[in-house]
Design a protein around this nucleic acid. Structure first.
Lengths: 188, 188
DNA sequence: TCATATGTGTGACTCAGTCACATGTCGATC
DNA sequence: GATCGACATGTGACTGAGTCACACATATGA
């Protein structure tokens, strides 16, 4: 009993998971950067701006991408120079809103499409029931990452918030975070 | 018939896969870089040097990491300055071997351990049969990435070649690559 | 033998970010 | 209402990790 294939088994799966995560991320960064003609970070910013519901500010972008304030300023400078965003007055006298231009919106959609294409390509070889199974397993894999405070950027910085199903309660990240907050309500 | 949960279904799983790959890679880069006190690329280089069987050269490292020749020279400069590697004569009058020092070997092992810890942590919530299932599915997810020529670094640049089981025919990357080469033997 | 390919290395530069610091604004408290 | 600390943005100077263009030595093949 206990586990016949312990030890080496875990290592094999761990290694495979690491390798897959690496290719998927590599590919995604390459194609999203190409889709907007800027850096992967800029691509992530465009994607985030596309999916934000309320008027995003420079500071929100900073948090999502895990940058320093000045880093975010430089990033928005670049996006603005490319004609992708404009700065406007924020809700606050201190903050400024960052808004996608038409051109920026188009670029952001290209970014999202490019990402989706890579990911759909990866899933192409799976049958529907296999995809269902995978979905459940991926959800479980998330938990450990949500529990702990993250040092770098936001998990969902490239997410498609529609297909993510956050509002419908389908997003494991959102669900875990919610459960976590209700459990231990430490207001920072 | 056909597929009742088509369309949106694929998008959901695709999105989840992308998000998971992103966190896993983020975390891995963070901890491996911390483990050696240098950049994620340097950490990958140490890991690669640890697992190379034959005497690695600067050029091999360059290929694995997807750098330019001069980029690789700079990287090895940094590794040497940190006391992690030494340059020696290569098999060839042109090439030079890059060898881990004792200190470098220790650092490389820390890198490998740090990576393994992240990945094992992700898998911690899965039962043994769930891990088996995941393993099979991850293997299938790989195929599309191996078929196409990659622009950026090598898929396995952080792999633990022992637990990967390449020689025993357990590594899906190696297997796919092998099958691919026997099918279309274009010697470039 | 000579042209070409290959591996390594250098100088000048770029790009994306950092840090230290300045400025303007908000909220709370006296 | 004045003041003080926290906060959002922005700027100048700098760094780290890479690039490109080029040089040089060695290897390979016609």
């Amino acid at each position: 009993m206990t586990t016949p294939t312990r030890g080496a088994g875990v290592e094999r799966e761990a290694n495979l998971l690491g390798a897959l995560a690496l290719v998927v991320t590599d590919q995604t960064e390459t194609v999203t950067a190409a889709a907007c003609g800027l850096s992967p970070t800029a691509a992530a910013a465009l994607s985030a701006l596309l999916h934000f519901l309320d008027k995003p500010t420079l500071d929100m972008l900073r948090r999502v991408l895990g940058l320093t304030p000045s880093g975010a300023v430089r990033l928005v400078d670049r996006l603005a120079e490319a004609g992708y965003v404009t700065r406007g007055p924020g809700a606050d006298g201190r903050s400024r809103s960052v808004t996608l231009t038409q051109k920026g919106r188009r670029a952001a959609k290209r970014v999202a499409r490019a990402r989706a294409q890579v990911l759909r390509g990866a899933l192409a070889g799976l049958s529907v029931p296999e995809r269902e199974t995978l979905h459940a397993l991926l959800g479980k894999l998330f938990s450990p990452f949500i529990r702990q405070p993250r040092s770098t950027g936001w998990i969902c910085r490239l997410c498609d918030t529609v297909s993510c199903g956050r509002d419908a309660g389908h997003c494991p990240v959102a669900n875990e975070a919610l459960a976590w907050h209700t459990r231990a309500s430490t207001p920072d």
